[in-house]
Amino acid sequence: MEFLQKIQVIERLDQLIKLKSTGTADDLSRRLNISKRSVYNILELMKRMGAPIKYNQTRQTYYYSYECNFVLGFLESKKL
C-alpha cells in the first residue's frame, strides 16, 4: 500500500472509530477494501502514533478511550 493510500485509510478509519461504527476487523477489511492483516497493521500503526484505540467486544467496535484528532499536514510557521 502506498503512503498516500495508507493515509486515506487511516483518515477513514479515524472517522469510523469516532462514530463507534467500525464493526469487527473482518467488517473493516471489507469496508476499507483491504486485508484483515492490513487492518491490524494500520490499527497498530495508529496506536504507535498515539491513538488511544480500544475494542468493545459487546458492541463489536473500535473506539477511542478519550477524544483525540488525527492531524497530518503542514502549518504555516507563524501559526505554531
Rank of each mutant, 00 (worst) to 15 (best):
S29E: 15
L72K: 05
D27M: 03
N33W: 04
I17Y: 02
L43V: 08
R48C: 09
R59P: 00
G23M: 04
S65M: 08
Y40M: 07
N41V: 07
L4N: 11
A51K: 03
S21V: 04
N41A: 14
N69Q: 15
S77Q: 13
T22K: 01
M46W: 03
M1R: 00
K54R: 13
I53L: 04
D14C: 03
L43R: 00
V9C: 02
N69I: 10
Y40W: 05
N41P: 06
E44M: 09
S35L: 11
L13I: 00
N56V: 09
T61I: 08
D27Y: 06
T24E: 02
E2P: 05
E2D: 15
R48L: 12
I34A: 02
G23F: 05
L80W: 14
C68A: 13
L19V: 05
N69E: 15
S65V: 06
V9F: 02
K78I: 11
T24C: 04
S38K: 05
R31A: 03
S35Q: 10
E67F: 08
D26T: 08
D14G: 04
F74A: 11
Y64V: 02
I10F: 03
M49L: 13
K79M: 12
M49C: 07
S29M: 10
I34D: 01
E11S: 06
T24Q: 00
G73P: 06
R30V: 11
Y62R: 01
L13N: 01
L72A: 15
Y55C: 06
V71T: 14
E2V: 00
Y64G: 06
R48K: 14
L80K: 12
R48Q: 13
E76G: 06
R59A: 11
R30A: 12
L4R: 08
F74S: 13
M46L: 13
G73H: 05
I42S: 09
L28M: 05
R12Q: 15
I7K: 05
L45I: 15
Q15Y: 11
L19N: 10
K47L: 08
